[in-house]
Simulated scan of single mutants.
Amino acid sequence: MLIFCKAVDRLADLMRCDRKVTYRAFLDARTAPYVTPLLDKIVADDADGDTLRNSLIPWRRAQRPPIAIYHGDISRCRIDGPWQVADDQWLPLGGLIVTSGVTAHLNPFEAQALHKRMQQAIEDVTLAWVREHDLYALRHVPEEIDRTVADPAAKAMIAAWAVGRREADAVPNARPDTTRDCCPGEPGDGLCALCRKGLGHA
């Protein structure tokens, strides 16, 4: 039945003029409530869909399902699943490190050690950022955001930053650490504390 359905879909796709194709899959009832909303987001023909599809490129290239992918400008690390249970321990199947002049496959124990070290590094950097920007002083907010409000505000901040940068570039002999009049004390293209918090300037 599935083969017949796919054959019909391919025939229908040949007759379409809108450059769209039909993809049909039969999902287990247990996983469908989790999978279908994700699929809807991935195939969306908008900026959100593009972003999700691009973020999945490293996952698609991996031969094993990644547990985690960490990457910088040059180096990247991958922890490979599925998880394996040994006694009371959960271990990955392996891992991968790619950086300048190095491609190294990791065994399960090396991958687990790297995974823990990367998680600790993320924890350390996150807490340092919280302290540096005094985020403990802010009131608690929910994780969810109202995109109808937050997205336009973020885009307006980016547009204002771009305008300020272009204006600074137009000024002769402008110093590299004064790319915007609003944040002259910040190095490079950094934002001041008010801009980072979205408060703007009085």
Results as ranks from 00 to 15, higher is better:
83 W>S: 14
190 G>Y: 01
153 A>H: 04
33 P>I: 09
19 R>L: 10
178 T>E: 09
142 P>C: 11
89 Q>S: 04
3 I>T: 15
130 V>D: 14
60 R>M: 12
3 I>G: 09
50 D>E: 11
80 D>K: 00
120 Q>W: 07
55 S>H: 02
61 R>Y: 11
171 V>C: 02
125 V>E: 08
54 N>L: 10
131 R>E: 09
37 P>M: 03
81 G>A: 04
141 V>I: 05
161 W>E: 06
36 T>Y: 08
25 A>L: 12
16 R>W: 04
36 T>D: 10
91 L>D: 03
172 P>D: 06
78 R>G: 01
88 D>E: 12
95 G>A: 02
58 P>A: 01
197 K>H: 12
164 G>M: 12
167 E>W: 01
28 D>T: 07
196 R>F: 04
195 C>Q: 10
45 D>N: 07
70 Y>T: 00
94 G>T: 11
53 R>S: 10
101 G>M: 04
96 L>F: 11
115 H>K: 11
168 A>Y: 07
75 S>E: 02
87 D>E: 12
31 T>H: 04
106 L>R: 01
57 I>F: 01
17 C>G: 10
163 V>E: 10
58 P>V: 02
186 E>I: 11
51 T>K: 04
74 I>L: 05
169 D>V: 12
12 A>W: 09
137 A>L: 13
30 R>L: 06
69 I>L: 01
61 R>N: 12
21 V>P: 09
140 H>E: 08
104 A>E: 15
107 N>K: 00
155 K>I: 13
189 D>I: 13
159 A>P: 03
36 T>V: 12
17 C>E: 14
87 D>Q: 13
69 I>M: 01
15 M>L: 10
92 P>Q: 05
126 T>E: 13
193 A>Y: 00
142 P>M: 10
29 A>Q: 13
137 A>C: 04
31 T>V: 14
35 V>N: 00
143 E>K: 12
83 W>P: 02
69 I>E: 01
15 M>P: 00
110 E>Q: 15
107 N>G: 00
96 L>N: 05
7 A>R: 14
202 A>D: 15
123 E>C: 12
100 S>P: 00
77 C>W: 02
193 A>Q: 06
135 L>I: 11
102 V>T: 15
62 A>N: 04
176 P>L: 11
114 L>T: 02
28 D>Y: 12
67 I>A: 04
195 C>D: 11
172 P>C: 05
134 D>Q: 06
30 R>D: 06
80 D>N: 03
139 R>M: 04
149 V>Q: 14
20 K>T: 13
188 G>P: 01
85 V>T: 06
150 A>D: 05
7 A>Q: 07
46 D>F: 03
99 T>Q: 05
16 R>G: 02
85 V>Y: 00
58 P>S: 01
9 D>P: 06
